[in-house]
């Protein structure tokens, strides 16, 4: 299965997906006008992984500093996709700066609907 690496741009995050190990990391800022351009490739890679990942695990690390509302919407879709993959053992680590209330609150909002996914809020300083 293909790995995915997308370098960060001024308005989009760095994305690293290692399908052999089962890790996805999204790091940086995300405020493109069209969020689907950034998140489309991630969705496709995840979908490919999840359909044949039965019994496997996936760790997703979010290290986001800022994202706009259309990226928030895309992130919500991603969490719904993860939640629906009931056969895969998924852990999400939501990293945020300890003094950043906004990112903490987003993490709490996203985690609310999740039952199958383990969601960790990880404050860093």
């Amino acid at each position: 299965m293909d790995n995915l690496f997308i370098a960060a741009t001024e308005r989009s995050p760095e994305v690293t997906f290692d399908s052999a190990v089962g890790t996805l990391r999204i790091k940086g800022e995300s405020y493109p006008e069209d969020a689907s351009q950034v998140f489309g490739p991630i969705f496709n890679a995840l979908q490919d992984y999840l359909v044949q990942a039965e019994g496997k695990a996936l760790k997703v690390d979010f290290e986001l500093i800022y994202f706009n509302s259309s990226s928030a919407k895309a992130l919500m879709n991603m969490f719904q996709m993860l939640e629906n993959a009931a056969d895969v053992d998924i852990v999400v680590n939501w990293q945020f700066m300890a003094d950043d209330e906004t990112m903490k609150e987003f993490g709490e909002d996203f985690s609310e609907d999740l039952e199958h996914v383990t969601f960790n809020l990880v404050p860093v300083s």
Binding site: Y31, Y66, N68, S69, M97, D99, D100, E101, T102
Partner: peptide, 13 residues
């Protein structure tokens, strides 16, 4: 920092 983020976010939207 919180104010900077709020102003920036409103500016972007």
């Amino acid at each position: 920092v919180t104010t900077i983020k709020k102003v920036f976010s409103v500016f972007v939207e």
